[in-house]
């Protein structure tokens, strides 16, 4: 018998067990552990106290050395991880909820007054330069430490909102929604029970993207002095390092930028894997 020849080039890629996704998940878990250790008080509590000398080299006491003021870089990095997670989670969760609500309502009442209003609001928010918005808000909120978070939530929901609106508009005309109406279910119940649960895949992916964006933004804003006010952040560490790098001291710079890079990369790898999972069109033709 002839051996069967492959018509398309046989170049199989393992379909399950996405190794990149797993690696991403592991990285994120390590960072989460670090953040948890800071929240539970296991480590990083001495981030503000000035204990050591200026620019001490890594040692058993100061694992990553000290900064210009003699503060423990390791403790500061651990505490910064907690800050990053706090910001990322808070902004991702609240902005996704806001996006789901406003997008859902806009999509449900699309081409009506409410939809117009929400779209107008989204248009306005999208057209304000972001950093100007944060500065203005920080000024308006009189240096409130939550000004940065508020600004991010107010601007980041628009992306989620737009996607949810589109999906709700699509779902609204699906036959199971019309059947639900035919049974006589109240509109709000249909929205809650039959429409919004089916936008979950969008919310999961969007929340992951917002999480990453929020951490990046937090670092940049803190670096610029608009972000974290009475805490520590990789951004503040980087701001310190601008003075240190000139003196040939790279501790703060390497630790802060390296940790941020690793976490964001890990998270992106994980988010890609999640997206492949929840996207029903991902696999077969």
């Amino acid at each position: 018998m002839n051996r069967a020849a492959a018509i398309n080039s046989p170049n199989p890629r393992p379909a399950t067990n996405d190794p990149v996704g797993i690696a991403g998940l592991l990285i994120v878990l390590v960072f989460l552990l670090i953040a948890v250790s800071a929240w539970t008080g296991l480590s990083g509590q001495n981030w503000a106290s000035i204990e050591g000398g200026r620019w001490e080299a890594p040692s058993a006491q100061y694992w990553l050395g000290t900064n210009r003021l003699g503060q423990d870089i390791f403790a500061r990095a651990v505490q910064s991880t907690a800050t990053a997670f706090e910001t990322g989670l808070l902004v991702a969760v609240v902005s996704s909820m806001l996006g789901a609500l406003l997008g859902g309502v806009a999509g449900w009442f699309s081409n009506g007054f409410v939809d117009e209003l929400i779209l107008w609001l989204k248009g306005v928010l999208d057209s304000i330069p972001f950093y100007l918005f944060v500065a203005a808000l920080a000024f308006a909120m009189k240096g409130n430490p939550w000004a940065m978070h508020t600004a991010m939530i107010l601007t980041f929901w628009t992306g989620t909102g737009r996607l949810v609106r589109g999906e709700v508009m699509r779902l609204r005309n699906q036959e199971f929604v019309i059947s639900a109406r035919a049974i006589g279910l109240p509109e709000f119940r249909i929205l809650l029970r039959h429409v919004l649960p089916n936008t979950l895949h969008i919310l999961v992916v969007q929340a992951a993207l917002v999480f990453v964006a929020a951490i990046k933004t937090e670092v940049i804003l803190s670096f610029l002095g608009l972000g974290i006010q009475d805490g520590i952040s990789w951004g503040l560490m980087l701001a310190e390092s601008t003075q240190e790098v000139l003196a040939g001291q790279f501790g703060n710079f390497i630790v802060a930028s390296g940790m941020m890079f690793l976490l964001l990369m890990g998270f992106n790898m994980m988010a890609d894997a999640i997206q492949d999972r929840v996207d029903p069109q991902g696999g077969m033709v």
Binding site: Q174, E175, F176, S179, A182, G184, H194
Partner: peptide, 23 residues
């Protein structure tokens, strides 16, 4: 109208979208 509806029901074509996918 909602009350009157149980006397009058509808079934659609598309078996894919006639049932709520997550229920």
């Amino acid at each position: 109208l909602r009350q009157a509806r149980h006397k009058l029901q509808i079934v659609f074509q598309d078996s894919g979208s006639s049932l709520s996918p997550r229920r």
